[in-house]
């Protein structure tokens, strides 16, 4: 039984990583990774929504009929997003102002919906919760990684403004790696988002290849 959970966790965190393998949830991945902190915050919000909605869908899976499942899923996700939206507005207002539009847009992020359809709708409560949480954390890791690369290359800092998100005691994470005028502005601008994501997908394939695994050529970029 414990093995099953390890597999779910490994799937979510690395093997089937929502961003790098399945290429889902691309919009926040590109838009909110101008810095590692933004990516981290966006990832956490998405992870919270995914865990909560997976739990609810798994709990209600016998009551949801096949025909109406998509609207029901979307409404459950939308309700969770509204909760996260209000909570972040109240308690993390600075970050909320940065993420702005993209918090309500978690509703139309395909990753939560894809996991609900593929996993939570058929699984008992606990595995569904673990899957939602691990997929969410995997998403957070991917966003933080993309954000970190773009931030270092673009503005020369790492985790700038982390204290706004996590509280003043995390000020030590705010690093400056390059002098202020050395950044390549393009990495912060939209083209950099595409470029870094493309190269990080290649890095993941390279690591998978090193580990002796087959590379997933398809990527489930056929969903949503």
């Amino acid at each position: 039984m414990a093995n099953a959970y390890v597999k779910i966790a490994r799937d979510g965190l690395w093997d089937n990583n929502g961003v790098f393998s399945m290429l889902l949830g691309m919009c926040p991945t590109m838009a909110m990774t101008t810095s590692a902190t933004n990516g981290f915050g966006m990832g956490l919000a998405t992870a919270a929504v995914m865990a909560a909605s997976s739990l609810l869908v798994a709990a209600a899976r016998n009551a949801i009929t096949q025909e109406v499942r998509i609207p029901v899923f979307i409404l459950i996700v939308a309700a969770m997003v509204t909760l996260v939206d209000l909570a972040m507005n109240a308690w993390m207002h600075e970050l909320y102002k940065v993420l702005g539009l993209f918090i309500p847009l978690i509703v139309s992020n395909c990753l939560p919906l894809a996991r609900l359809e593929a996993f939570a709708a058929k699984a008992p409560i606990v595995p569904a919760l673990v899957d939602g949480l691990c997929m969410g954390i995997g998403f957070t890791i991917a966003l933080t990684a993309i954000g970190a690369v773009r931030e270092i290359a673009g503005s020369g800092t790492l985790f700038a403004d982390a204290s706004l998100l996590l509280g003043p005691s995390f000020r030590f994470m705010e690093l400056r790696l390059l002098p202020a005028d050395r950044g390549v502005l393009m990495m912060i601008l939209p083209p950099g988002g595409f470029l870094v994501t493309g190269f990080l997908v290649v890095v993941k394939r390279l690591l998978d290849l090193r580990a002796g695994k087959e590379i997933q050529m398809s990527g489930a970029h056929a969903v949503a």
Binding site: P190, P191, G192, L195, F199, V202, R205, L209
Partner: peptide, 22 residues
């Protein structure tokens, strides 16, 4: 190249297109 086949090369092309639109 095999490593870039599929989505990664798509992203890189998209990046160039985004640069053009800038």
């Amino acid at each position: 190249p095999r490593l870039f086949a599929g989505p990664p090369i798509g992203f890189i092309v998209a990046s160039l297109l985004a640069m053009a639109f800038m």
